[in-house]
Every structure is written in structure tokens, then in C-alpha cells.
Simulated scan of single mutants.
Amino acid sequence: MYKPGQGNNAYIFPGVALGAVLFCTKHIPDKLFLLAARMVAEAVSEKSLNTYSRVYPRLKDIRELSVKIAVEVGEYCYRHDLATLHPKPKDMEMFIRQNLYSVEYDELINKTYEWPAKDSKHGFPVPVLRRTSMDEE
């Protein structure tokens, strides 16, 4: 059974873009996409391929794969004088991890307080709705 996936949008572009943005590359050569595609292919285990017919790595591993691709993108860009971020970070993986987008937020709104029902209506008159002949029709 073959299950197609979003190879470019889900696996290739995030890692390549992460490396390109963080290392301020002059341009993105096609070679980087081939490099990323090979890394994605290598990330698929034999069991995943043969038992579950997966041609892409598991989604739970996608963030780590993007970090690995970004490291390789950075190495390639520094080797080929495409990176403009200087000096080159000593620990490229740590540099990437420090700049990853995080979906965890501090709570912006204070915990709500449940006002007693009597106090929550105090000072705010509640209008009385009257039925009209139009309501009955």
C-alpha cells in the first residue's frame, strides 16, 4: 500500500528555509534541495518502509529532521561561500535550536476569577423583556 505525502512542503522546505534564513545565504542553489531530499530518504527506516509502506519519516520526527537539514544547509553554504552570517557559529546545531520557532507561549491573560453571582449583577440592571403581540404570531 502506498500513502503519498507532502514531501516538499512538510519535509524539504522547512529545513532548507531554516538553514537559509539563519545563515543568511546569498541564494539557495538547487543542490540544497537534493541534499535535503537525500536526508529525508535516509531518515526512513527499513521497517517503516517495508512494514508500513511509509516513504516519508514519521511526522513526530519532522522537527528533528528539519534541524538536521538546516545544519547540513549551513555547512554547505559556509563551504561554498554562500553564507553571510559571520563568524560561523561554533556549534551550528545549538545555534539552530536557539532560533527555532516555539509554539509554547506564556499565559498572557491572568487566571479568571469567578465572581459570585450576586456581585456580578450588582449595578447592572437587567432589562425585562416584554412579550408583544408580534412575538405570539
Rank of each mutant, 00 (worst) to 15 (best):
Leu49Glu: 04
Leu49Ala: 13
Leu82Met: 08
Lys68Glu: 14
Leu35Cys: 01
Lys60Trp: 06
Ala83Leu: 05
Leu82His: 04
Glu93Arg: 15
Asp81His: 13
Leu49Gln: 07
Phe95Met: 06
Val55Pro: 06
Arg63Cys: 06
Thr84Phe: 01
Met39Tyr: 03
Leu82Trp: 06
Ser45Leu: 07
Leu59Gly: 12
Leu35Arg: 00
Asn50Tyr: 12
Ala43Trp: 08
Ala70Gln: 01
Leu85Met: 10
Leu35Ala: 01
Glu93Leu: 02
Phe33Ser: 00
Thr51Arg: 12
Glu64Gln: 11
Lys31Tyr: 14
Arg58Asp: 09
Phe95Lys: 06
Lys68Ala: 13
Arg63Glu: 12
Lys68Val: 04
Arg63Leu: 06
Leu82Glu: 05
Val67Leu: 01
Lys68Cys: 05
Leu34Asn: 12
Arg63Met: 08
Pro89Ala: 00
Leu59Gln: 15
Asp91Asn: 15
Glu72Ser: 13
Ala41Val: 04
Thr84Ile: 00
Lys47Ala: 12
Val67His: 09
Glu46Cys: 04
Ile69Arg: 02
Val71Trp: 04
Pro87Phe: 09
Asp61Tyr: 07
Glu93Gly: 03
Ile62Ser: 14
Phe33Asp: 01
Ala43Asn: 10
Val44Ser: 05
Leu82Asn: 07
Tyr76Gln: 13
Lys90Gly: 08
Gly74Ile: 01
Asp91Val: 10
Tyr78Thr: 06
Tyr52Pro: 04
Glu93Ala: 03
Leu34Ala: 14
Arg38Thr: 00
Glu64Met: 04
Asn50Ile: 10
Met39Lys: 14
Val73Gln: 02
Asp61Gln: 05
His80Glu: 10
Pro57Leu: 03
Ala43Thr: 08
Lys31Gly: 04
Ala43His: 06
His80Arg: 07
Val67Gln: 07
Lys90Val: 10
Asp81Ser: 14
Val73His: 04
Tyr76Glu: 11
Ile62Pro: 03
Met92His: 05
Leu82Cys: 08
Asp61Arg: 02
Asp81Cys: 13
Arg54His: 13
Leu32His: 04
Ile62Ala: 15
Glu46Tyr: 10
Ala37Tyr: 00
Leu59Tyr: 03
Asn50Glu: 14
Ala41Ile: 05
Phe33Tyr: 15
Leu34Ile: 14
Met92Asn: 07
Ser66His: 13
Ala70Trp: 00
Tyr78Arg: 05
Ser66Asp: 08
Glu72Gly: 03
Met94Gln: 15
Phe95Arg: 07
Val55Glu: 10
Val71Gly: 02
Lys60Arg: 14
Glu64Ser: 12
Asp81Lys: 11
Pro89Thr: 00
Ala83Ser: 13
Arg63Asp: 11
His86Leu: 12
Ala37Ser: 07
Pro87Asp: 00
